[in-house]
Simulated scan of single mutants.
Amino acid sequence: MASPLNVISPLLLILAILSTGPGFSDSARIFTIINKCKESVWPAITPGENFGGGGFILKSGQSIVFTAPVGWSGRIWGRTGCTFDKNGNGTCQTGSCGSELKCKASGDPPATLAEFTLTATDFYDVSLVDGFNLPLAVTPINGQGNCSVAGCDRDLRPTCPSELSVKLKGKTVGCRSACDVFNTDEYCCKGVYGNPVICQPTYYSKLFKQACPTAYSYAYDDPTSIFTCVGTDYVITFCSPRNQTVCTYHNNKLVCSGSSNNFKSQTTILGILLLVLASLLSLLNMS
């Protein structure tokens, strides 16, 4: 049998389609989370009241949809190598938030983080300040402004310096930050280095930045790493190229990324039926 959360996932997608229309609140943000990795990922969200309680499993190829209100500010990351019992207690190789499936606290580094502040103008970024454990891309759709794709879509684990590597059974499962490993003022941007003038890129942060130019590589890496967008929805994708086309439904429209003007296509009955069919197939796969 499918778990209750996996049953709700495609139903939420269908309800999101059926509820769009003149009465649907344009202030809400639709979050679509997709797992394109070859293995299962356990997404974690804090605060998670609007996101299935803050934690769930996504098997390879699965996706889930949530709606968050303006005013929500939080972070999303993926956990790997998890084992949870029927009560939602267990452990993960990376990204653990204690021993719970539904996170109520930040994840343990290393973890690739997507960070959001939803206001009249949204702020969002992908951060490697706490290290790296999974490729992660944030694609804004249907917004206005500097709505660039943020993220780190390269897998940094195979090239992680040995002194930063987290290994299990000989396999690198994560890449720690220099701050986490060495805990110096220079690497952590603290003490006399606690300002953007003194704290500059280091050897390790430059490695991260070279591989992932639109992700935070250290604490004050703001100019090329934080983005703004107005009235947008978000697609968060694990293990997928940043330039891959992704779509969501909003206000009776199928809205896709992949063009400079955020290509839009008016939803038709066929389009709704196809999405419902895809949701039902996803439901069957989860069982």
Rank of each mutant, 00 (worst) to 15 (best):
Leu15Asp: 08
Phe66Glu: 09
Ser257Met: 05
Gly95His: 09
Gly151Val: 10
Asn243Thr: 11
Ile34Phe: 06
Cys147Ser: 03
Leu18Ile: 10
Tyr203Ser: 02
Asp222Lys: 00
Gly55Lys: 10
Thr202Asp: 06
Pro201Lys: 01
Ser217His: 09
Thr172Lys: 03
Thr83Lys: 12
Val7Arg: 15
Pro140Thr: 15
Asn87Ile: 07
Ser106Asn: 15
Thr267Asn: 08
Gly191Thr: 03
Cys97Pro: 00
Ala68Phe: 02
Val255Lys: 02
Ala219Met: 13
Tyr187His: 15
Gly54Asn: 04
Phe116Gln: 00
Gly95Glu: 12
Ala137Tyr: 00
Trp72Gly: 00
Thr228Trp: 00
Asp153Phe: 01
Asp153Thr: 05
Ser40Ile: 07
Ser60Ile: 06
Phe182Gln: 10
Leu18Val: 13
Pro69Phe: 01
Ile272Asp: 04
Gly23Val: 11
Tyr218Trp: 13
Thr214Gly: 00
Ile57Cys: 13
Lys36Gln: 12
Ser127Ala: 02
Pro140Cys: 11
Ser165Gln: 11
Thr119Gly: 15
Gly231Gln: 10
Val197Gly: 06
Cys188Tyr: 12
Gly258Met: 10
Val230Leu: 04
Cys97Gln: 03
Trp77Lys: 04
Cys97Phe: 01
Phe116Gly: 00
Arg176His: 13
Phe31Ala: 06
Ser99His: 12
Glu163Lys: 04
Thr46Val: 15
Leu275Lys: 15
Val166Glu: 14
Lys171Ser: 13
Gly88Ala: 09
Thr245Ser: 14
Ser265Arg: 12
Thr232Leu: 01
Thr117Asn: 11
Gln266Asp: 12
Ile45Asp: 04
Pro161Glu: 14
Gly143Arg: 06
Gly23Tyr: 09
Asp85Ser: 08
Pro43Glu: 13
Ser260His: 07
Asn285Pro: 05
Gly81Met: 07
Leu270Gly: 10
Ala120His: 12
Lys36Asn: 15
Asp85Ile: 05
Thr224Lys: 01
Gly170Leu: 11
Cys229Arg: 10
Pro213Ala: 00
Asn146Phe: 07
Asp85Trp: 07
Ser96Tyr: 07
Gly98Val: 07
Asn35Trp: 11
Ser282Trp: 09
Asp221Met: 00
Ala114Leu: 01
Leu128Ala: 04
Leu12Phe: 07
Tyr124Gln: 03
Cys160His: 05
Thr184Asn: 06
Asp180Ser: 14
Ser257Lys: 09
Val173Phe: 04
Phe208Leu: 09
Val255Gly: 00
Thr83Pro: 04
Gly170Arg: 09
Val173Pro: 11
Asp233Gln: 01
Gly131Ile: 10
Pro69Val: 03
Pro110Met: 02
Thr121Val: 15
Asn195Lys: 04
Phe123Asn: 14
Leu128Val: 09
Cys239Leu: 08
Gly78Arg: 13
Phe227Met: 07
Gln93Cys: 05
Ala211Asn: 06
Thr202Met: 02
Thr245Val: 15
Ala16Ser: 15
Ala68Met: 09
Ile64Glu: 14
Ile64Asn: 04
Asp85Arg: 14
Gly271Asn: 10
Glu49Phe: 08
Arg154Thr: 12
Gly61Phe: 06
Ser60Thr: 13
Val192Cys: 03
Val70Ala: 05
Lys253Met: 12
Ser73Val: 01
